[in-house]
């Protein structure tokens, strides 16, 4: 039973890791578009938009790799959970303020697989919250399914 749980946990972290990794790489590939998307949220002061864009992309890539290889999983899970929570809050604030965004800048393989639109939706907020919960579960799980874990 413990082995099954470990396999499922490994599967969960690898899937989350791949989502983050590919999403980060895609954003870095179209960095101008991503910076434009970050700006369009009207959350950060102008001076912070570019540094924040670099940090977000690097967070996705680093966390993606850490989750995939199982490096410091409790920390990676916790920070990934915070990252997804930030994404969810940012999207929710856009929806709350009714900003006319055509693209949320959050396109990734999960969103494509779920056929979510590029515009911010409450469904996207829910998916981000779900990912945050899954990441937190990985962070708090005593059996993190990695040889680096103990």
């Amino acid at each position: 039973m413990k082995q099954v749980a470990a396999v499922l946990l490994t599967l969960l972290r690898v899937v989350l890791g791949l989502i983050l990794l590919f999403s980060g790489i895609a954003k870095f590939d179209g960095f101008g578009t991503f910076v434009a998307a970050v700006e369009s949220y009207h959350i950060l002061p102008a001076a912070f938009i570019r540094p924040a864009s670099y940090l977000l992309v690097s967070a996705e890539i680093t966390l993606g790799i850490a989750l995939c290889i199982g490096y410091r999983l409790s920390g990676a899970g916790a920070v990934a959970s915070l990252l997804f929570l930030c994404f969810a809050l940012a999207l929710a604030s856009v929806l709350w303020r009714q900003l006319p965004l055509s693209s949320c800048g959050c396109e990734n393989i999960l969103f494509e697989w779920l056929s979510l639109s590029q515009a911010p939706t409450w469904k996207a907020v829910f998916v981000d919250m779900l990912c945050a919960a899954a990441s937190l579960f990985i962070a708090l799980s005593p059996q993190q399914g990695s040889r680096f874990a103990n």
Partner: peptide
């Protein structure tokens, strides 16, 4: 406590990677 030390490590890595991406660009 471990979760905090690991989070700190990961955050440091994120900052380093951000710096690297910036240098690369």
């Amino acid at each position: 406590m471990r979760i905090f030390s690991d989070s700190l490590f990961i955050t440091l890595w994120i900052c380093l990677v951000a710096l690297a991406l910036w240098c690369i660009t």
